[in-house]
């Protein structure tokens, strides 16, 4: 039942996105713009500042993710469909998981464009250890999106949601961003520091477990008016 409802919500979001392509295009456009602005600022004579690539990749993911989170729940606000979801005879945390999966898939899609772009513009050797990088990105994206999905759902009826979402989200997800940047940076050293990257990835997985558990636990009471 739980998985069926989560997949239903994911499928519904996917069907809407296939028709509108709104969130995918705006998220990609924003993320790419973000990377280009940093490239103009930080690349001189074809050489990037040392160790900038990892930070820029994760900043672009965080900024684009915030935009995607806001837009995804804007859809549920229009027509108050979130209330209809909450009224359904389904486990309410399953609705959270469905929305979370949609955001994670969207951000992972954006990352498939962002990683080669940052690698190209900042001469970063992202593909030296592709599986470790993929692990860091997946774990970091889940951690960021798990908190963001909860906050975006909570703020859906707030008039100041566009301002409040980043104000609430960034301080809480700082550990995820730091772990993502440090882990990615470890992979970009002349000799990739695999043990350090693996340690940061393990830390990200711990964050994921804590954040997802807390979100599942608090989603239902937080969503009741």
């Amino acid at each position: 039942m739980f998985a069926r409802v989560a997949l239903l919500v994911l499928k519904k979001d996917f069907a809407i996105e296939v028709k509108s392509r709104e969130i995918l295009y705006t998220t990609l456009f924003f993320a790419v713009s973000c990377v280009l602005v940093f490239a103009f600022a930080l690349v001189r004579d074809g050489r990037a500042i040392d160790d900038a690539a990892a930070g820029i990749l994760w900043i672009a993911i965080a900024f684009a993710g915030t935009l995607a989170l806001g837009r995804t729940f804007e859809r549920e606000r229009y027509g108050e469909t979130l209330r209809a979801l909450l009224l359904a005879p389904a486990p309410r945390p399953a609705i959270y998981v469905g929305k979370l999966l949609g955001i994670v898939v969207l951000l992972l899609l954006a990352e498939t464009i962002l990683v080669p772009l940052v690698a190209l513009l900042f001469q970063a050797a992202f593909f030296a250890r592709p599986w470790l990088l993929a692990g860091l990105l997946v774990a970091g994206t889940i951690g960021f999106a798990s908190v963001g999905t909860l906050f975006a759902a909570m703020l859906v009826r707030s008039r100041t949601r566009d301002v409040m979402l980043p104000i609430l989200l960034y301080p809480i997800t700082v550990p995820v961003i730091i772990a993502g940047v440090r882990g990615t940076s470890a992979l970009l050293q002349p000799v990739p520091d695999e043990p350090a990257a693996a340690m940061w990835m393990a830390l990200l997985v711990c964050f994921d477990v804590v954040f997802v558990t807390l979100a599942l636990w608090t989603f239902e009471p937080l969503m009741t008016e």
């Binding site: 027509g79 209330r83 359904a88 005879p89 389904a90």
Partner: peptide, 30 residues
């Protein structure tokens, strides 16, 4: 909750989806 039906002032419909997709989604949810 499954025994309650609500038609609120906001209509609880997804405008991007077709009428059939809206009904099918909520039917499956129930």
């Amino acid at each position: 909750r499954g025994r309650i039906g609500l038609l609120a002032h906001d209509l609880h419909l997804y405008p991007e989806l077709s009428a059939r997709q809206n009904l099918a989604f909520f039917a499956q949810l129930y």
